[in-house]
Nucleic acid binder design. Structure first.
Lengths: 121, 121
DNA sequence: TGTAAATATACCTTGACACGTATATGCCTT
DNA sequence: AAGGCATATACGTGTCAAGGTATATTTACA
């Protein structure tokens, strides 16, 4: 289980993460709110901790888990490369440019670079 | 294969998506640039298309694939719930790292980029 | 000290999915 | 019409991860 993307691919893990946004929670609290078996919760938390999504502190027999920000930022920075694309792609100008792209490359199989206008953000 | 998160969990699919950021590409071009077997490329493209990440247009025997923005925005909006959290923690994290700077913890993988949350488009 | 609570882990089973190989389909060229 | 290129798909296989059940470990408390 290497990448952050595989970690958040699991629905129960995403549920746990969403739960932890509000505040730190114990395993039992997660178990009850999400109605998951306790071993399931513990195992997912183990995965999340190994991946750096959460950290735990000890409170008697309980363990309190809370979020850590770094892996989320990693996902966010992966998204960066697509932000420019989708912000431009929304408006009609882009559709026009795409049609031009299509017509210019019907004959030329040169992988044209399509110098597009940078989004103004 | 329901969620967008499972789609982007696969490294080869992420590679294809990154490749398509620059411009639309045919299956053969993807195949050559990523050095993947052609059926692998086609099958991943099938998954990506079913999930709405790409769409294809016909150019003779070729199929040209290009990105679609919606699923990326879905990931982005899922991240939203965590942005507030990590923006609050950035300052504390920076101070923390500053203080821990020369102690070089066992767990200290100091690759933080401390990116701040982006405003939603 | 013994028992119950909270959590972690080991073991097994099952299912999904990624891959490789082979083949099918479609279009283009001669 | 035939053969070749580009792409899609079918099929068999192996791997890996998630779930369930049982058990281990630690701590509180009577």
């Amino acid at each position: 289980m290497q990448s952050v993307f595989e970690i958040i691919a699991e629905p129960n893990r995403r549920a746990i993460l969403s739960l932890l946004v509000s505040s730190k929670q114990s395993v039992g609290e997660i178990e009850r709110q999400l109605r998951m078996p306790q071993p399931t919760v513990s195992k997912h938390l183990r995965v999340l901790r190994d991946a750096g999504f959460v950290e735990s502190t000890v409170d008697a027999q309980r363990r309190l888990y809370r979020l850590k920000p770094e892996p989320f930022q990693e996902v966010d920075s992966w998204l960066d490369q697509f932000r420019r694309f989708w912000s431009v792609h929304i408006d009609a100008l882009e559709r026009h440019l795409d049609r031009m792209d299509q017509s210019t490359q019907t004959k030329g199989k040169t992988k044209e670079k399509t110098t597009r206008p940078k989004p103004r953000t």
